[in-house]
Amino acid sequence: MTGFGIDNLPYGVFSLGDNTFGGDRRRIGVAHGDDVLDVSAMAQDTPFAPLLDAPVLNPLLAAGRATWTAVRAAVRQWADDPAAVRYPRADLTLHLPFEVGDYVDFYSSEHHATNVGKIFRPDGNALTPNWKHLPIGYHGRSGSVVVSGTPIVRPQGQRKGPQDPAPVFGPSVRLDIEAEVGFVVGAGSELGSTIDVADFAEHVFGVFLLNDWSSRDLQAWEYVPLGPFLGKSFATSISPWIVPLDALQAARVAPPARDPEPLPYLRDVEDWGLDLELEVRLNGHVVTRPPFASMYWTAAQQLAHMTVNGAPTRPGDIFASGTVSGPERDQFGSLLELSWGGSQPITLPDGSVRTFLEDGDEVTISATAPGPDGTRIAFGEVTGRIGPARSSGA
């Protein structure tokens, strides 16, 4: 089973990657089994042609909930058509599926936030005073969002360890991963307006996997007093397949109990916790399996908070869950946690030892969720390999 059955049908953008006429043209496809259905071709002579005969998903994203539902119904019919245009998925080149607008990254796992607090504030409160009152987030750099498989260049910058007399410049020595889940906005909202938690499904098109690569040493030196900057902005990898929100109805669960109760604009109207099971592999070895169902703040609450001040949204905006971590060590979603700040190195099955990432390391995040009638919905993978820092002349 591929997890790309008729109840999933995730959207992506592909090219044939050969020298035939039009082989490098980007077109919209839907993963079905081991194949990709060319919906650009199937949509010709239909009302959906202007939306699907495009090199990115943004026209479809902008069309809104009613059109998403109608297109999905058409895609299900095309997937069962023996004459449908399809290609083996393994033979295709996959691309960034949409033009990314704005990017917001949240910090919404209580387990992750508690672990980080214990690592950096062992004698203080693990959670900051505001953490259980609002979804904490920051604006990331959309221009460095890349599709799975894009090589990741080790970032450089200033760093200063606790015992260093002065900062130094050089490649990051504490390069980390963050296993996250991303959400892409379809129908946008105007400047000065807000999106209520009840309207989440009217604005969010789908879900994907995200690796928020993080330089912990650059981050530690720069983040006081303003927050993440160069330690995060060098690269963010996303999976090439966007699972429609409609495919995840069987995966919806109640979020954890909140104490204290959130302010009215953040209170749950529907259950938008999602029972996703993530898996992180380092050089082919499984190192953790974070459970997304344990996330304290849901995507609906994140979107409501992101717009409560009147900030607009537009098709292609993305926001990420923040690192997904569970209560057990084999459920932690970052090397920072798995190695407990570098003090407890992890040993891989091949005998190699890691605290943080080394050049040549490859990280792959995958996930599945419950589908109808006992099926599983797959999200594909987001993969990145670390390459050495480039010379800066500094």
Rank of each mutant, 00 (worst) to 15 (best):
M1D: 13
G3L: 06
V13P: 09
L16Y: 06
N19T: 13
G29L: 01
G29E: 07
D34V: 05
A43S: 15
V56F: 03
T93G: 07
Y103T: 11
V104L: 10
D105P: 00
F106Q: 06
Y107M: 10
S108F: 00
T114L: 00
I119F: 04
W131L: 03
K132E: 09
S144T: 15
V145G: 07
G149V: 02
V153L: 13
V153S: 14
R159T: 12
R159E: 03
G161K: 05
D164T: 04
A166D: 08
I177W: 13
D199N: 14
F208K: 09
F208D: 07
L218Y: 06
Q219T: 12
K232N: 12
S233I: 04
F234H: 15
S237V: 02
D246G: 14
A247W: 00
P262I: 05
L276K: 08
E277K: 13
R281G: 02
R281E: 13
V286T: 15
V286Q: 08
S294G: 11
Q302C: 13
L303C: 09
N309W: 05
T313N: 13
R314V: 01
A320N: 13
T323P: 11
D330E: 12
L348T: 02
V353T: 15
R354K: 11
D361T: 05
T375A: 14
F379V: 09
G380R: 04
P388Q: 12
A394Y: 15
